[in-house]
Each structure stands twice: as structure tokens, then as C-alpha cells.
Design a protein around this nucleic acid. Structure first.
Length: 710
DNA sequence: TTGCAAGGGATTTTT
DNA sequence: TCCCTTGCAA
């Protein structure tokens, strides 16, 4: 075994690994080797302390983190731990696993054939319920209601309890919807993400012997990203650790950026109180960044009031100072970034080791344009995830319905995709019939179609009923079920290309379906349990973002600060560092929100290994109107000084321009210079572009090239 | 029932 | 400015 704990770990890390009795809080600053501590601790427990893997549970928030941890532990102790029963997974998947075994003991009507629904289904269900209650979805925004229900649920507040607190109209509405919502889920044997955890807790409360079983089983519990737990996840850990009390939580309060989703960083701050006698270990040595970057980041996050005091340091040396650049408009900012990236590439940097980080997805657009015109390859993280795409969801709806005919949400989607002449009116009739018979919508469908006069619609619906039944019949093989959908649903035919490959949307839909087929194949090859149920479970919990691992991408990564958490790059650009953007305008009037924005900015900056570039614009127009903004307060708090962009884009020759020159801009094309003037040291040029009309540009960022008039 | 046009609204999003 | 939802017409 190639395991040398003393050699591979620094003293604090080692202490964290060797503290195997009692509660242990590891405050792991950015880049301080957090994952290393967890994986080594797992290895230590198994290899040095001889703990059976089946008595250890390691919990993460993402599948990616779980997968990484699993393979690293495998590499360390050299056995296939999964087979030995180590429980590594996300909160949701581990709870899902418990519920597959135990949910019937809750006696609430759920069976182990439950389906896990996602965010989109939740909203659709709320829509259905609002309709049922004759409530206007404009007044009562489904999204807000979902948010409030989720908030209640994750604070372990049930539908009945909620109504007692509701005063505002939206709270009352939420209480009303919540009751029906939960009933509908139960009737359909459906679980939302929150239920996965909430029901385990409910089960433990109702059946103490089951709680006893699991809490005795897990002698050691490790939790990653503990700053992101919500109340019910906290409660779950508390209950699971009550027999043995050996619970290690690892996290960084400074990287808590999900409060808006219910994460409660007070829980990590209160750990010592909740678990008396806890060992607290701070990891402050950073292995990622230069001291310049860390100094700036430290100085920023030190402004937050609610935090453990920490100060990151490194052996990596001082490095280049953090670069700060001002641009006039977002377009200028984007071209500044792309020129700087060009300079880095010329200097030998790998494009895949560069990231541009922003606050909002909408900021990616201009960046894309600038990178395209500079011919720099890039990759965007964000937007629709694979399993959220229409065409993919359609296929899944058939599978879900075949597996669980009680799934009304899947029915609503599948029945008229592709179109079978079954619209709102028909649906309303079937719903009524279903209610009268006490059946799910799908199960009521045959009786309804029997009343139709023979014809196309009836034939199609009969074939639909038949197909779903056939899917149900092959439910012990996911791949057979998927093949059935592909051959018999008529979904594929919808995406036949009649325009000779010119329709990119159709093309991408077909590609997505091919990709789906590949994932099923892969599932079929890898899993022990190849059933449709197992596949659906995996898919529901695996809302995978297309690979965003640095180094595996195809170019410069464009990514939000939230999604960038946990990643690292040699060169990082944080763009849009302006009041109103970063910090976001909606956070401006709450100090708690500003603190979260500050942590988010901190997360963004600490992604950088070698060099960090921060940019902002003085002029950004948006749908609020065009405006001038102040640079972000975070810039001052990081104690940065501005550089001239010309310093970094040194190879760029600055043209001396006069009125009447014809110039070339890499986005706007060619145009004629109308005016050249100075404000302070900065040169501005007013150009009449052929394509886009008159623009005022900052000469040092706009990169105008003088060209011969045609 | 379906397709198109106009209007309103627009952070972030591990599962 | 753009995208999604809703409403109306064929």
C-alpha cells in the first residue's frame, strides 16, 4: 500500500485525519486540500483503523464530488470499496437508497416504485394545482410558491403547520397549494428532491427502530461542504450520528454561497455548540494560488462579520499582482478580456486553463462574441442541462409513465408528444373521469378513449396506451424500455430533418437523443441493477452539467461564479466587477445578502492559480436603461490598484488615429473615425461603423486597426 | 388544436 | 435587449 499519511499531509491535515473519535469540524479554506483530507480520512479509517467500509458513510452535495471521492479512495486503498459496502453519495442519493428499502414502512401510500421529480415538474404540478384552485398564476407565481414550499419542507415544516404562519397573500396561497401538492405527490407515488431527505427524517421519527438500525450501522460519518447544509440535512446527520458520535464535517464558511436555496451557514458556525467536545481544525495553508491572490482574497472576505477568522497563506510565492482593468462598455470589456487571453496564449498558456467568471449568465453573450471574433475556442457552462432538454424529457416521460402509471406529470407530457390530437379540453375530461373513478389520469384514459368515435385520434391514443403497457412490461430492463420508446413513440419522427441538415435546432435534438441512447447503453454496461427503476433514479439525481472539469473542456471556460466553485484555473478573469452586477443589484439593500455576494466574489477570485484579472465597465446599459456604474466595492476591499490595459496587452500596437481614418474593429467591422478626444489620460474615438452605426469607444480597449479605405 | 404574435419580466441553482 | 408565456386567430 502506497499510503504514507505523515508524508502526504501537513500537520493540520494529519490531525484532521487522525481524529477519528467524536465530532470533528475541519474548516478548510479555499485550496487547502479539503478533498485530500476527506479521502485520506476514509482511507485511514479503513486501512489503519480496520473499520469495515459498510460502517462508513461519506456525504457530498454533488455527484461529481461523490464520484471523485470514490475513485480517489479506491486508488488509495486499492480495493473496490463499493462492493464492500461503503456508502458514498449525495444527500439525495443516499436518502433515496434508504427510501427504496424502507419507504413502505412510512405507511403513507408510497411504494418503492416511487419516481423522483425535478424542479420543472414541481412547477408544473403547482401550475396544475393553481388551476384547480382557480388561482391566477400571474398573481401567485408558481416559482415563488415552489420556493416557499421548498423552504418550509427543508425546515421540516409540513403542509398543516405552514397554514398557521401565513399572513401575506402569497403565504396563504402557499399553504393552500402545499397541502394539495403533497397529496398529489403521495397519490402519484412521486417524491421531490426535498422529500428524499424529509421523508427519511419522518421515517426515523415514526419508526425509531429504523433510525436505530442506520445510526448503529454508521460508525463514522463524513460530510463535505458542510457550510451548505440546510436544516433537514443537519437534522439527518444529527440523527445518523447519535449512536456513535463520530462525525467529521468539512467546509468553509467563507464559501457559503447557497443561502438563497436554503443553505444555512449558521449551522457550520454553530457546530461546536451542537456537538459538544468537538475538535476544531483550521486548514489555512493554500496549495493553489499565489500570495498576491490570497492577500487580495483575504482582505476582501475579512470584511464579513459572520465568519470564523481565517487567513490563507501559501508557499507558492508572491506571484504577479492581481490585475485590475477598467473598460467603457461590456463590449469593450469583452474585447479587453479576449486580447488579454490572446496574449496569454501567445505566452504559452493552454486555453483550457483559462476561465472567465461572471455573476449572471446573461453576461456570457458579449464575451462569446468577442471570443468568436478573436477565434479563441471557448466552452460555456450553464444554460439547459442535458436532462432538462425538451426532447430528453419527452423520452423520460414515457419511461416514467411505464414504470409508474400514477405519474400524472409524465402522462401530461407524454400523451400529446408527439401530437395525438389530445389537447387541454381532452385532458380536462380525462382528469374529471379520473377523479370520479379514483384513478390516475393514465389509468382513466382507456375508458375515455372508448367513448371516442373510431378515427385517427382514437387509434393513436390506443397505440399510446398499448405502448405504455409494453414499457411497463419490460421494466426490469431499462435498455429494452428505452428501445421501445425510440421505436414506437413517434418522438424520433418529429425530429426528422427535411431541410438537409440546415436546421441546427433539429440536429441538436437528434444529437441529444443519440446521447441519451449512449447513456442508457453505458448504464446497461456498468450497473448491477439494470432495471428501469434504477435507471430513472439515477437520471433524476444526476442532473449532469456537461463536463466542466478544467482540462477536459475544449477551450476557455465561461462560467458563473456559483458554478465555478470547486474548480481551479491558472488564469482567471472576473468580469463585471461593478455595483449592481457584482454585487448584484438585488443584494444591495441587505447586509446579509451583500455578505453572500462578497463570499461569491471571494469564491470567484480564489479559483485562480497563477494570475487573476478583474475587470469592470463604467457604462453598462441593460433593460433598466443605460447607466453609469461605480466599480464594485469589492475592488476597494481587495485593495487593488488599477492598471492600464495596454500593459497586459503589450503586443497590441496602438494606432494613432485622426478624423477621417478608416478603421477595423473585431466585432463591429469597418467604419470611419468621426472624432478623437481625450478624457484625462484616456483616448476616446467616435466611429461610424458600416454595420452598427455610430459608437463611442475607448481607444485603449477597442483595439481599432487602421485600414486602407476600400 | 395548433401556430404565431405581442407583451411582460429578467440573479445565482449542488439535487 | 431578449426570451418566455400568454392570448388570439385559423
Amino acid at each position: 500500500m502506497l499510503l504514507d499519511f505523515e508524508q502526504d499531509l501537513n500537520p493540520e491535515q494529519l490531525r484532521a485525519v487522525e481524529t477519528t473519535t467524536g465530532p470533528c469540524l475541519v474548516l478548510a479554506g479555499a485550496g487547502s486540500g479539503k478533498t485530500r483530507v476527506i479521502t485520506y480520512k476514509l482511507a485511514y479509517l479503513i486501512a489503519k483503523r480496520g473499520i469495515a467500509p459498510s460502517h462508513i458513510m461519506a456525504v457530498t452535495f454533488t455527484n461529481k464530488a461523490a464520484g471523485e471521492m470514490r475513485s480517489r479512495v479506491d486508488a488509495l486503498v486499492g480495493t473496490d470499496l463499493a462492493r464492500k459496502g461503503l456508502w458514498i453519495g449525495t444527500f439525495h442519493s443516499l436518502c433515496g437508497r434508504i427510501l427504496r428499502e424502507q419507504i413502505e414502512k412510512l405507511e403513507l401510500g408510497y411504494t418503492n416504485r416511487f419516481i423522483i421529480i425535478d424542479e420543472d415538474d414541481r412547477i408544473r404540478l403547482v401550475r396544475q394545482i393553481l388551476k384547480e384552485l382557480n388561482m391566477d398564476p400571474k398573481t401567485y407565481e408558481p416559482q415563488k410558491i415552489v420556493y416557499r414550499m421548498s423552504d418550509a419542507k427543508s425546515n421540516l415544516v409540513g403542509p398543516e403547520e405552514l397554514s398557521d404562519f401565513g399572513y401575506s397573500y402569497i403565504e396563504k396561497a402557499t399553504a393552500a397549494v402545499y397541502k394539495l401538492y403533497q397529496k398529489r405527490l403521495q397519490q402519484g407515488n412521486l417524491l421531490d428532491f426535498d422529500d428524499l431527505i424529509a421523508l427519511v427524517i419522518q421515517l426515523f421519527k415514526a419508526q425509531p427502530d429504523i433510525e436505530e438500525h442506520y445510526s448503529s450501522k454508521f460508525e463514522h460519518i463524513l460530510v463535505d461542504e458542510y457550510q451548505d447544509v440546510n436544516k433537514m440535512q443537519y437534522e439527518l446527520i444529527k440523527r445518523l450520528s447519535k449512536v456513535h458520535g463520530n462525525v467529521t464535517v468539512v467546509g468553509d464558511d467563507d464559501q457559503s454561497i447557497y443561502a438563497f436555496r436554503g443553505a444555512n451557514s449558521k449551522l457550520i458556525l454553530g457546530f461546536e455548540k451542537d456537538y459538544p467536545g468537538a475538535t476544531v481544525i483550521k486548514l489555512e495553508q493554500n496549495y493553489r494560488s499565489t500570495q498576491s491572490i490570497l492577500d487580495a482574497a483575504n482582505s476582501l472576505v475579512a470584511r464579513n462579520r459572520t465568519r470564523f477568522s481565517k487567513r490563507l497563506w501559501t508557499d507558492n510565492g508572491t506571484g504577479a499582482p492581481v490585475h485590475l482593468f477598467e473598460a467603457l462598455t461590456p463590449e469593450d470589456e469583452a474585447s479587453l478580456v479576449s486580447s488579454a487571453i490572446e496574449a496569454l496564449i501567445r505566452g504559452g498558456a493552454d486555453v483550457r486553463d483559462i476561465a472567465v467568471i461572471y455573476r449572471m449568465n446573461s453576461q456570457s453573450r458579449v464575451l462569446e462574441e468577442a471570443l468568436i471574433s478573436a477565434a479563441i475556442p471557448y466552452q460555456i457552462v450553464g444554460g439547459l442541462k442535458f436532462y432538462e432538454r425538451q426532447e430528453v424529457r419527452d423520452v423520460l416521460a414515457y419511461l416514467r409513465l411505464g414504470f409508474n402509471p400514477g405519474d400524472n406529470l409524465a402522462f401530461e407530457r407524454a400523451v400529446n408528444h408527439p401530437s395525438r390530437g389530445f389537447g387541454d379540453k381532452s385532458l380536462a375530461e380525462v382528469k374529471d373521469l379520473a377523479a370520479a373513478r379514483g384513478l390516475s389520469w393514465f389509468l382513466a384514459l382507456p375508458e375515455w378513449t372508448a367513448t371516442l368515435k373510431p378515427g385517427k385520434t382514437k387509434d393513436k391514443l390506443d397505440a399510446f396506451v398499448d405502448l405504455i403497457a409494453r414499457i411497463g412490461a419490460v421494466s426490469d430492463s431499462a435498455i429494452d424500455a428505452v428501445n421501445l420508446v425510440f421505436t414506437s413513440s413517434g418522438l424520433l419522427e418529429q425530429y426528422k430533418d427535411e431541410s438537409d441538415g440546415a436546421d441546427f435546432e433539429l440536429q441538436s435534438k437528434r444529437e441529444n437523443l443519440e446521447e441519451l441512447m449512449r447513456t442508457v447503453d453505458e448504464f446497461n454496461g456498468m450497473s448491477e441493477d439494470r432495471s428501469l427503476g434504477a435507471y430513472l433514479s439515477q437520471v433524476a439525481l444526476m442532473q449532469d452539467q456537461d463536463s466542466m472539469k478544467p482540462g477536459t473542456g475544449r477551450g476557455v471556460l465561461l462560467i458563473t461564479a456559483h458554478s465555478a466553485k470547486g474548480l481551479e484555473f491558472s488564469y482567471v478573469f472576473v468580469v463585471g466587477a461593478e455595483e449592481g452586477v457584482f454585487p448584484h443589484r438585488r443584494a444591495l439593500d441587505s447586509s446579509a445578502d451583500i455578505e453572500e455576494e462578497r463570499r461569491l466574489f471571494y469564491v470567484a477570485c480564489t479559483r485562480a492559480r497563477k494570475e487573476l484579472f478583474i475587470t469592470y465597465c463604467t457604462q453598462r446599459s441593460s433593460y433598466y436603461g443605460s447607466g453609469f456604474q461605480e466599480p464594485s466595492r469589492f475592488i476597494k476591499e481587495m485593495e487593488l490598484t488599477r492598471e492600464r490595459s495596454a500593459d497586459v496587452v503589450s503586443s497590441h500596437e496602438r494606432a494613432e488615429l485622426i478624423d477621417g481614418d478608416t478603421v477595423m474593429h473585431n466585432i463591429f467591422g469597418t467604419g470611419k473615425v468621426l472624432e478623437v478626444f481625450y478624457e484625462g489620460n484616456d483616448q476616446y474615438v467616435v466611429v461610424d461603423f458600416k454595420k452598427v452605426g455610430i459608437k463611442k469607444l475607448a481607444a485603449q480597449y477597442a483595439q481599432l486597426k487602421k485600414v486602407q479605405p476600400l
